[in-house]
Design a binder for these strands. Sequence first.
RNA 1: GGAGAGGUUCCCGAGUGGCCAAAGGGAGCAGACUGUAAAUCUGCCGGCGAAGCCUUCGGAGGUUCGAAUCCUCCCCUCUCCA
Length: 427
Amino acid sequence: MPELANVYEVLDSRGFVAQSTDPEAIKEHLEQPRTCYIGFDPTADSLHIGSLVPILALVHMQRHGHRPIVLVGGGTGLVGDPSGKTEMRKLLDIKQIEGNVAALKKQLSQFLDFSAGRALLVNNAEWLLSLGYIEFLRDIGKHFSVNRMLAAESYKLRLETGLNFIEFNYMLLQAYDFYYLAKHYDCFVQMGGNDQWGNIVAGIDLIRRKKKDIAFGITFPLTTTASGAKMGKTASGAIWLSSEKTSPFDFFQYWVNTDDRDVERFLKLYTFLPLEEVERVQGLEGQELNACKTILAYEVTALTHGVRQARAAYEGATGVFGQRLLPQDLLPSSTIPRTIEQKVEAVPTTLLSRERLRDGIPAFQLFFEVGLCSSRSAARRLIQQGGAYVNDERVRQFDAPVGAAHLTEEGIMLKAGKKKIHCVRSA
RNA sequence: GGAGAGGUUCCCGAGUGGCCAAAGGGAGCAGACUGUAAAUCUGCCGGCGAAGCCUUCGGAGGUUCGAAUCCUCCCCUCUCCA
């Protein structure tokens, strides 16, 4: 799977690079197989699609023969990164973090090949927790200028609202991580979100001072949608990579609903389809562009949940929303089946007992129960505003009974609005 | 440690005794329009089988017929001084 181009060029051309230290030097460095790392904070037991860009950057690295290191911040997670945030993050306790670290490792294995040392996962708790304070101050602290730190962009926001000492230290810890990885793993490239720039540069400085070595940094643009919203925020919360938190079907649907203006950019960032093909998407509109969204959704879902799940989600979407025409020559490298059966199996489903279905359940109760609405009140509102459908028929009355009479071969299809869908079947 | 300012519903931010489930904006949701897009317009936007009731304005008490608003103590944040 080696490709000819230099990874840096690949990353750059696909829109991964927001800032970087000397591009020429990085390119040269990456001519040889190297080690690079990105840190992930174990703040939850699953990553969400905001982490997809860093993950895929590592995948690019691996595909080009480099060795990615995933650093989970079991140690730094205890401190909390203030970069770019307005408020202090809740401090997590060690137990939670350990659980999260394990979950993240599993999730990342979906994307990266950790076999035979082709990629590594390290936890900075390993070296941070045992640090002695005085020793750390003398060794590391002396290299940091408070004046410079205060000037850092990443602290700017927090300087206005308040920053406490533990958070102020975060930069030193992350810099130390980088130094540690350079020393023990020969890792001289760190990547991260653009809000990490200050922390990355701090590490580079530390490496130069302590090791007399040159290290490199690349940051990714903070991905937002064209309408300015953060990636992956929806009514029901974040879009998670874990299929338990966000079903592959909903995950797929999230991408299908991509803003027109984001399609090309996202194809570059979130899929591995060749650039030349992606660029041909430019200028497409309407139906044709929608076809691209389907492919985008399929590709990202396949990467995250595997081809089978992607196919099922795609079939489900087709079953619910209808078939889209996918021309053979549109993004031809995509392995998406161009024609497909319409099945609804992938639609999130709730099983209800025969008795309950026989008796019928008031619509608002049902919509709440299957999770389409966050409360019974919300369900009433939805129905009263004409946004609730049972088998594509608008529900007129908030407590209209839904039950066995509505059962079809495919179950009962509940829709909240035009896009959120849930299936009910008899247990 | 001293002096001031402040903590309001998802976020920002009004409200200083009843008309407050709390202005306004943002986010979000729904409808119309569409292409499962955007923009726009309209409605909704604490909970409850909804008349009415219940829970919310940092926390705990208190005053009052009645408190987000007044008093006491506590916790937290910011600014200036030491």
